[in-house]
């Protein structure tokens, strides 16, 4: 039984290879980029605007509002990274309704790559926000004893991110495949709808957790604007 679209090799030349994961990722990238470009090339700042522009504005402002509610005061700085995470995972889940489509997020390589990106982005945003010294100091706060626990926390949550998304997406696709084999009617449709829901939930969870990690690396040591005491 095939657990990952990585196993579908479309082309290989030495260490370079083109598997289904990369191919479907490219397809998603092209769809997202071209779709966005088609919609945004006719943007207007008038009060009356197109439905597609309204849709994109709702999506972008919704993501920005979620980021802000997490505690990141300047959501536009994190919108590119966190918004792309959500849109990529969500669009991969939505496209599972297309026949023959293998979600790239069903590959542990993809989820690991996304988790690695989060793993790298968190300290980068932390250093950008409070400087290298301030960020590193957070690992030994309140005491040096916390340093190994913090490091373990960073690694484990990265691993958890990758495995959680992979497990959910892979299990959904696998259950769907098994049900199609057993009962080709009714149940696959229900499970597909359920898969769409779980996919959207996973995209939301992945993005929110990344935002929480970034917020923990940036905002946690910033004083509250109301009373000035550190969090």
């Amino acid at each position: 039984m095939r657990l990952s679209p990585d196993e579908i090799i479309l082309w290989q030349q030495g260490p370079l290879k083109l598997n289904a994961t990369i191919a479907f990722t490219w397809a998603l990238m092209v769809a997202l980029a071209v779709g966005s470009q088609l919609i945004t090339r006719r943007l207007t700042s008038e009060h009356h605007r197109s439905r597609w522009q309204n849709l994109l504005e709702i999506i972008v402002t919704g993501i920005a509002r979620q980021i802000e509610e997490i505690g990141l005061s300047n959501p536009r700085s994190y919108l590119g990274f966190l918004g792309t995470l959500f849109l990529f995972v969500a669009s991969a889940s939505l496209c599972t309704v297309l026949p023959g489509f293998e979600p790239p997020t069903g590959s542990l390589s993809t989820t690991a790559a996304l988790a690695l990106c989060v793993f790298v982005a968190v300290p980068l945003f932390g250093i950008q926000d409070q400087g290298l010294r301030g960020y590193l100091k957070s690992y030994i706060t309140p005491t040096v004893i916390m340093l190994p626990f913090n490091i373990i926390s960073e690694l484990s949550r990265t691993l958890a991110l990758a495995v959680r998304l992979f497990g959910n997406m892979m299990s959904g696709a696998m259950i769907l495949a098994i049900l199609v084999t057993i009962t080709p009617f009714i149940f696959p449709i229900v499970m597909t709808a359920l898969g769409l829901l779980t996919g959207m939930v996973q995209a939301y969870i992945f993005s929110i957790l990344a935002a929480v990690y970034i917020a923990a690396a940036t905002n946690t040591r910033q004083p509250r604007p109301d009373n000035g005491t550190p969090l």
């Binding site: 657990l3 990952s4 990585d6 260490p15 370079l16 290879k17 598997n19 994961t21 990369i22 990722t25 490219w26 998603l28 990238m29 997202l32 980029a33 966005s36 590119g80 990274f81 918004g83 792309t84 849109l87 990529f88 790239p104 590959s107 542990l108 390589s109 993809t110 690991a112 790559a113 996304l114 690695l116 990106c117 992979f166």
Partner: peptide, 21 residues
Amino acid sequence: LIDWFTVGAQVVNFLILVWLL
């Protein structure tokens, strides 16, 4: 389950997607 070439490619793909979006 983890193909490290694919992981690297997906990291690059994700960064490109971030730029594109």
